[in-house]
Design a protein around this nucleic acid. Structure first.
Lengths: 357, 357
DNA sequence: GTTAGCACTCGGATAGTGAGAGTGCTAACC
DNA sequence: GGTTAGCACTCTCACTATCCGAGTGCTAAC
C-alpha cells in the first residue's frame, strides 16, 4: 500500500509554485542542480536572481528542494515532486498527435493476446523515455471459458485452460490409466459442461455433487481427476497477485545518469522481481481506480528508494483488472508519464471491454 | 557462427601449461592481476618467482596473457581462456553431489512445461554464479498435436494450437459470420483431422485439396478460414530462430566487478535482446551437437566483446532442439560452467525424450 | 636452466592549490 | 514589506605534485 500523498505543505503562493515547477522542469531535463541565475536567465520571471534565491531558500525550508552542497543549485526532493504531481496533476493530457499515433499502433497489432501487453509496455517506454510495465489482466476469481485435454503419452495428458479474460494456463496431468484422445475428448466435453463460466469454488462444489463410485466408470474417474487438477490450477492462478508482467525500455532507465553505477541498476532489477511489492501496488491502484504515483522513498520497498512508479489500472472492477505504468528515476517527467499512462490504460480498458465483455 | 577455436599455439610444455592454468584459476577467483610472487607463494610450483616471471613473459609473447600496465600482474587474454578451455575441456564433470541435487530439483518441478526452462536457467545461474539461459525446444517444421477453437465473441474466436513438442500458441481469429461454440467444436474436429501430426506445408496442401464452394457450407468455410490462420501461425513459429528464451541470475553478472559501470551491463542486456545473434549461436551449437564456448571477442556481436557464453543443445536432431547455457564475464569458471551446462542439457534431453518421444 | 638482486616503471593514494559556481546575508532602495 | 545589488563565504572540481608500493625485466652469478 502506498503512503498517502503528503499534503502537509498547504499550498504555495502562485509565484513560489511557479518557481518550484520551473526548477523541477529544468532539473528533469538537465539532470544538474538548478541555480537562481540560470532560472532568471532562461525563464521570464520578472524578478532578480536575489529574489529567486530567497524563494528557493523558502522552498528548501518547506522541504521541497534541497542542496547537494553549499555552492550548488537546488534539486527537488521527493516531497517536491509530490507537490508538483499533486497540484498540477489534472492539467495534463496527451497531445492529439501522440494519441493518434498510439491508437494507430494498437490498431496494427495482431490479435494475439500477449502482444497487447508487450505493446503497452513498449509504447509507454518509448513515449516517456523510461521503462514501461504492463501486467496481464487478472480477475479475483477466474472463470473458465474452455478446457481441453490433449494426449501426450498413454498416461499423461496436457490440460489447456482458457479463462474468460483470455489468459491461458497449461498443466500436465498424470492419468491412472491409458487414455486415447477419443476418450479424453469425451472427458473434456463433460468437464466443460461442469466448469464453463464457473470459478474454482463452484467447480469444486459441482465435482462434489457428481455421482461417485457407484459403478466403476473410467470417464467419470477421469473427470473427477482432471476436475481436481483444474481446480488446483485455478486456485494457483487466483492466489497470485500478478499473473504475468511485461516490461520494456529498461535500457532507457540504464541510460539515466543517476544509474551510472551498476549497483543502482541492480536495485531496479531486484525491485522488478519483487512480485509481492509490485502486486500490492497494482492492488492499490486497482482499488483507487485511477492513476497513482509512487515517488522515491514513498515506496515501501528498500530497492525502490531511487525510482518512481506511475501506475494506472485497466479493465473493469469486479471483472479482470491489470495495471500499466512506467518506472524511472525520481527525476522523470511526471507530466508526460501520467498523461501517457492514463491514455494507455484507457486504451487497454477499451480493448478488454471490447474483447471479453 | 562462432569463429573456430585458435590452435595457433601448438601445445605448451607441461610446466607452462600448468602455470597458465594456475594464473587463470587464480584470476578467475580473485579478479585481480596475478603476480609471479603470489603464484610461488600460494602454489607449490617448486621454482622461484624469477623463473615464473620468465614463463609468464613467454606466455605473454604467445598472446595468452597480458599486462594491464608495467607494474601489474598478468591477466588472461581471450586466447588464454580459449587454450584453457580447449586443452582441459574433457576433464570436467559435475560432482555426484551436485548432480543429485540438480536431479532432485528437476524431479520436484511441476509438470507444466515452461517451468523446466525457468528451472534450467535458474539452476545454471545458481550453480555457476553467472546468468543462466534456456531456450524452448523448437523443431524445424512444427507439427500439430491439437487445435482448439474457443468463442470469444460472435465473430471472434481464439485458436489454441498445441504443437507436438509441447509448445502452445494462441491467436485471435476474426470470423465472417456468427458462430457459437457448438459450431466451432464441429469445425475444430474437422481441423484436427486435417492438421494433426502435420506441418504447415502439409496442412496447406490438405486445405487446397478440400472440396471448395460447391455449395455454400458454413462449416467448410470456417474450416478453410481457420486452416489458413493455423498455417500462418505455424509459419511464424517456424520462421523464428528462437521461440522463447528464459534467463535467470542476471543479477549475478551485475555483481561482477568488470560490470561496475552501467554501460557494460547495458551491453549485456542489449546482447540478450539480439535474437538474431543468439539464434545463430543456438543453431551452431545444435549443428555441432555438443557444448560450445564463445569467449569475449570471439563473439561476432559488438555487444558481447566482454562476455563469454557456454552453450549446449538439448533435444534430438531432426526433432525439436533448444539450447541451455550460461552467460558471464570472460573471467568465469569455464570448468564449472561447461560441466554444469553439459549436465543440464543432458537432463533436458532426457525430459524431452521422455515426454514428447 | 635457474635464481638472487636491483633498477625501473607505472598506478593509485594523498595533499595542495586555484578557479568557478552559487549561495546567504546585509544594506540600500522603491 | 518586498526587492535588489553587492559581496563574502563555502564547497566542488580539475589540475598538479609527490610519494609509496607493486611488480616487472634484466643482468650476472650459480
Amino acid at each position: 500500500m502506498a503512503r498517502r500523498p503528503r499534503r502537509t505543505i498547504g499550498s504555495l503562493d502562485a509565484r513560489s509554485g511557479a518557481i518550484l515547477r520551473t526548477v523541477i522542469d529544468e532539473y528533469v531535463s538537465s539532470a544538474t542542480p538548478v541555480s537562481s541565475s540560470s532560472l532568471v536567465e532562461h525563464y521570464p520571471l520578472g524578478v532578480s536572481s536575489a529574489t529567486v534565491r530567497n524563494i528557493l531558500s523558502d522552498l528548501e525550508g518547506l522541504g521541497l528542494l534541497m542542496h547537494p552542497h553549499t555552492s550548488a543549485g537546488r534539486v527537488p526532493t521527493d516531497a517536491g515532486y509530490r507537490y508538483y504531481v499533486q497540484v498540477l496533476a489534472d492539467e495534463w493530457s496527451l497531445p492529439q498527435v501522440e494519441q493518434r499515433m498510439i491508437r494507430h499502433q494498437f490498431g496494427q497489432v495482431e490479435l494475439a493476446s500477449d502482444h497487447w501487453f508487450r505493446l503497452a509496455a513498449s509504447t509507454l517506454a518509448s513515449n516517456t523515455g523510461t521503462a514501461g510495465l504492463a501486467t496481464t489482466a487478472k480477475p479475483e476469481a477466474a472463470r473458465v471459458r474452455r478446457v481441453d485435454l490433449v494426449t501426450v503419452q498413454d498416461r499423461l495428458a496436457l490440460m489447456v485452460v482458457v479463462f474468460r479474460e483470455g489468459t491461458m494456463k497449461q498443466t500436465l496431468q498424470n492419468l491412472p490409466l491409458d487414455a486415447d484422445q477419443e476418450q479424453l475428448n469425451r472427458v473434456a466435453a463433460l468437464l466443460n459442461v461442469l466448469a464453463v463460466d464457473r470459478t474454482a469454488d463452484e467447480i469444486e462444489r459441482a465435482l462434489a455433487d457428481l455421482p461417485m463410485g457407484e459403478e466403476s466408470n473410467d470417464d467419470l474417474d477421469l473427470l473427477q481427476l482432471t476436475g481436481v487438477g483444474l481446480v488446483r490450477t485455478m486456485r494457483e492462478f487466483d492466489a497470485a497477485l500478478i499473473d504475468d508482467i511485461f516490461s520494456d525500455g529498461l535500457l532507457n532507465v540504464m541510460a539515466a545518469p543517476e544509474f551510472d553505477r551498476t549497483e543502482k541498476i541492480r536495485q531496479v532489477f531486484a525491485a522488478l522481481e519483487n512480485r509481492t511489492y509490485l502486486g500490492s501496488l497494482v492492488e492499490s491502484v486497482a482499488r483507487e481506480g485511477s492513476v497513482q504515483v509512487f515517488i522515491g522513498h514513498e515506496n515501501r520497498s528498500a530497492d525502490m528508494q531511487d525510482v518512481s512508479l506511475v501506475l494506472a489500472p485497466y479493465g473493469r472492477i469486479g471483472r479482470a483488472v491489470g495495471a500499466v505504468g512506467v518506472l524511472g528515476p525520481t527525476r522523470m517527467s511526471y507530466a508526460q508519464a501520467i498523461a501517457s499512462v492514463e491514455f494507455v490504460s484507457d486504451l487497454m480498458s477499451e480493448l478488454v471491454e471490447h474483447l471479453y465483455a
